[in-house]
């Protein structure tokens, strides 16, 4: 692997190191890259009847959130405006860690989901999306005659 001898940007080097460490743990990262550390953070869980997605996206206007489900690919997009003062204000920004700007997260879900059975709500800064599984994919008890 070739790396510039002149790369002396400590932060990008640390980023690279962190990526390499993560990659060594995640055996096969998804084609959409390593999602960890992105905005919003995602938790995904499932029951036999539905898949639940929780996006930790505080401080957003739910009306401006775009949620799309297309062929088993879920996209969550939107924008979080910056709340920092303009640079000409007489204010000093001491810590600036909160995310600001446009975001888009794409997750590929299993294909047994019903695109008509999607519900979404936004509470306490968490966007919750519930997607039902298709009837045909749900476990059924087979009775023995």
């Amino acid at each position: 692997m070739y790396r510039s001898l002149f790369s002396r940007d400590v932060f990008s080097e640390l980023d690279r190191l962190q990526r390499e460490i993560q990659e060594s743990f995640d055996v096969s990262p998804s084609i959409r890259g390593l999602g960890r550390g992105g905005f919003p953070a995602l938790n995904i869980g499932g029951t036999p009847q539905a898949v639940q997605i929780y996006a930790f996206a505080p401080g957003l206007d739910p009306a401006k959130l775009e949620v799309e489900l297309d062929r088993g690919v879920l996209t969550i997009a939107g924008e979080r405006p910056s709340e920092l003062p303009a640079s000409d204000d007489k204010a000093a920004v001491h810590i600036n860690e909160r995310f600001a700007g446009r975001f888009r997260r794409v997750v590929s879900l299993s294909d047994d989901l019903d695109p008509n059975g999607v519900t979404a709500d936004y509470r306490e800064g968490v966007l919750h999306i519930g997607i039902k599984r298709r009837e045909s994919a749900q476990p059924r008890r087979i009775s023995i005659q």
Partner: peptide, 12 residues
């Protein structure tokens, strides 16, 4: 969370 949910992926 719904009862019986199993987490499959968690960043939080």
């Amino acid at each position: 969370t719904p009862e019986g949910m199993e987490a499959s992926y968690a960043e939080v």
